[in-house]
């Protein structure tokens, strides 16, 4: 019988209710003989060299992934780490019609035949609903594998806990949705920090993620295909929410806390990031020293 691998990626924050839900789902799955469940650190902060990534890559069969991110962000962040598959359909949340439409015409490079179901833990705060959805996926799989011969093996032990290797630092970089990207290279032209590059096949890739300026999502705003995600950005459309619909789960109080008008945003974000970068790169010259002396003189 086919074992279904289920990975729960932890929330990056301190929210006790989120951590409790992660534990509850893991506990609920532990008793299911058809499931190999594991808890892993916050997905977006993982690096390719992390032990957790190696474990995840060893799973070759179907995979269900739960994280506190939009399903699109989950899928393409995994893809970036070399954990590839077809997007499974979940009944907790409908796919973006934009993606449905493209499903036939576009296929991600190197997408493997196995299926990965990405579930957003924010969709429902009831543990049982998530567990029930996993069991539904399992039933569907059994129905298919009854006709499809022997199943792929799953090498995960029944319950494991993957720890982040070394210090876990919160990262910031773009994730490309290759189901949407059409290699127009706008991002490559727009980004001034060399984050993007082109691979041997001529596809744009996030070549140097750590060059990205924390908090800057400007390339995502200029992408004509809305193919660039910043999974941790607070604006749902940039974080990978389906469509451009407003995320009603939480209020956005930014305006009360001093947010500027949205129209000036993309240019301001890039310029601010650039100003920061120049400051780092440029050695202080005599003019700077003179300005400091003038400041100190308090004229």
């Amino acid at each position: 019988m086919k074992k279904l691998a289920v990975i729960i990626f932890r929330s990056p924050g301190q929210d006790p209710r989120k951590h409790e839900m992660e534990e509850n789902i893991l506990a609920a799955l532990a008793s299911d003989p058809d499931v190999a469940a594991a808890m892993a650190p916050h997905l977006y902060d993982l690096r390719e060299a992390d032990a957790a990534v190696a474990s995840l890559r060893s799973v070759t069969g179907p995979l269900v992934v739960l994280a506190w991110l939009y399903p699109r962000a989950i899928h393409w962040t995994l893809d970036r780490l070399g954990i590839k598959g077809q997007r499974g359909e979940t009944q907790l949340r409908r796919d973006d019609p934009e993606d449905e439409k493209r499903k036939d015409s576009a296929s991600a490079p190197n997408a493997s035949a196995r299926t990965i179901w990405s579930l957003d833990l924010r969709d429902n705060d009831d543990t049982a609903t998530h567990v029930a959805e996993i069991q539904r996926i399992l039933r569907d799989l059994h129905a298919v594998s009854a006709n499809a011969g022997p199943a792929a093996s799953v090498t995960l032990p029944s319950v494991i806990r993957m720890q982040p290797s070394g210090v876990s630092l919160s990262r910031w970089y773009p994730v490309i949705d290759f189901g949407r990207c059409n290699d127009c290279m706008e991002c490559l032209d727009f980004c001034l920090f060399g984050v993007y590059g082109v691979d041997d096949d001529g596809h744009v890739v996030v070549e140097s993620p750590d060059n990205c300026k924390k908090g800057c999502p400007a390339c995502s705003r200029v992408c004509p295909q809305n193919a660039i995600l910043f999974p941790m950005h607070r604006t749902p459309a940039i974080a990978g929410a389906p469509g451009a619909s407003f995320d009603a789960r939480k209020l956005d109080l930014s305006e009360l806390f001093g947010a500027p008008a949205a129209v000036q945003l993309a240019a301001a974000e890039r310029n601010a990031a650039l100003a920061g970068a120049e400051k780092e790169a440029k050695p202080r010259d005599n003019l700077d020293k003179l300005m400091d002396a003038l400041d100190d003189a308090k004229l």
């Binding site: 924050g13 924390k214 941790m232 607070r234 947010a259 974000e269 920061g276």
Partner: peptide, 29 residues
């Protein structure tokens, strides 16, 4: 529940620059 800074200590900032984010039980900002 969640506090994050998008600039490092030592960073020069202008008034109204975005420097971080909070998430709470009710809201993000």
């Amino acid at each position: 529940y969640f506090l994050e800074w998008s600039v490092d200590a030592g960073a020069a900032v202008r008034q109204k620059d975005e420097i971080g984010a909070v998430e709470s039980s009710k809201a993000v900002a």
